[in-house]
Amino acid sequence: MKTKLITLLLTLACFVNYAEAQSLDMLKRKAASKAKQETTRAIRKTVGAGVPKSVELGSIPATLEEFDAKYNVIAMTPEGAIAMFLAAMDIYARNEELGAKCFGLCFHPENRNGDLPNNHFLSFMRSRFHYGDGQPWIARSYFEGAKPDNGYTPKEPLTLKMKSRANDDDYLTSMDADVEKRWLQSSGADSERAVQVLRVRGEELYYIFEYGGLPSQVRKPRR
């Protein structure tokens, strides 16, 4: 009985120490995040905030191999990772199987289900693009030159513009990563839509963290 009590007390002590360590780690991360957030806001107020940045996608990849190769080149910036996510969305609207695999590459390996996004994400995208009143033109509506009047036909090479805002927050994740927010305007919507990407510290590529309203419906094309 005494041995069991000692074991229980030791287990409880280990649990308390672990919980305290986790809490301390979270407090440190919150403090670091707050400091980074204040610095980032100060920079955005003087440099770049509200000024659209352009990223050239060129064309939509035709195969998974092409998608992977292009992702590894342009997803070194937040804008590039977002452009690739929209490319995956356009592919998915036309080819569900290939698009799902391309979507998988847009998420960090720790946030995937094997090589694919999680089931909730795929279920949402399936309902958006392959059930009922699907809108295969959503992704194209963000690219330069696309508008309802021309059937959302973008200019070539495909170019995307987006911007940050001075009051955008920094976000904590369960990963040791920096998160960036960008705002995009669809020509078929009335207001800008936000998307967040993350880059794990020590890594080169950005990945989708929160896709927000990007897949939301837009006005139907007029032709």
Rank of each mutant, 00 (worst) to 15 (best):
I6E: 07
S187Q: 15
P52S: 06
A19Q: 14
K36P: 00
S187W: 11
K34S: 09
E97D: 07
I208P: 03
S127P: 02
A166W: 01
M89T: 11
V179T: 11
E203C: 05
A146Y: 14
V179C: 09
A100L: 00
G213L: 01
L24W: 08
P117W: 06
I74T: 03
E110L: 11
R126T: 06
A81Q: 09
I91Y: 02
P221N: 04
E96S: 06
S164Q: 15
R223P: 03
R182Y: 08
M76T: 14
D90M: 06
K34F: 01
S174T: 13
F15E: 05
L105D: 03
T159C: 14
A13N: 12
A35S: 11
A166K: 11
A146C: 04
A81G: 03
Y131Q: 12
L205H: 08
R126P: 01
D90T: 08
E56S: 10
E79N: 08
V179D: 05
R201W: 01
R140Y: 09
V51W: 01
F209S: 09
A31P: 03
D190Q: 14
D178C: 02
G134W: 12
I208K: 01
T39P: 10
V195W: 02
D178Q: 06
C102K: 02
P109Q: 08
R41W: 09
E204T: 15
P157F: 08
A177K: 10
A49V: 10
T46E: 07
W137C: 04
K30I: 13
K155P: 05
A146H: 07
R165H: 07
I43T: 14
